[in-house]
Amino acid sequence: MDESVSTVLSRYIREDLLPGFPALDENLSLFEAGVLDSLALIKVLLFVERRFGVRLGMKDLSLASFDTIAQIAALVEAQGKDR
């Protein structure tokens, strides 16, 4: 069975972006928690585009839409449906 977008994202953050970071709640604010900063944001964007084969435009991205794993997963899933 394919892993959910949230699971893949969570693992990427804990294993590649911030190795050793404790388990992440889907609704944790990644910017508030210091998981994402401006450079990490670009890394996550690149990872998402490569891993899930979607193209996210700036119109999809904002502090309110890219702040939690659940929000990023929703964006990816919405892009997947559009294609």
């Binding site: 401006s38 944001l41 670009i42 964007l45 585009e49 193209r55 996210l56 435009g57 700036m58 991205l61």
Partner: peptide, 12 residues
């Protein structure tokens, strides 16, 4: 989007 964020990041 990536390029815009990179340049935006420098300016911001």
């Amino acid at each position: 989007a990536r390029g815009a964020l990179l340049l935006g990041n420098v300016l911001a």
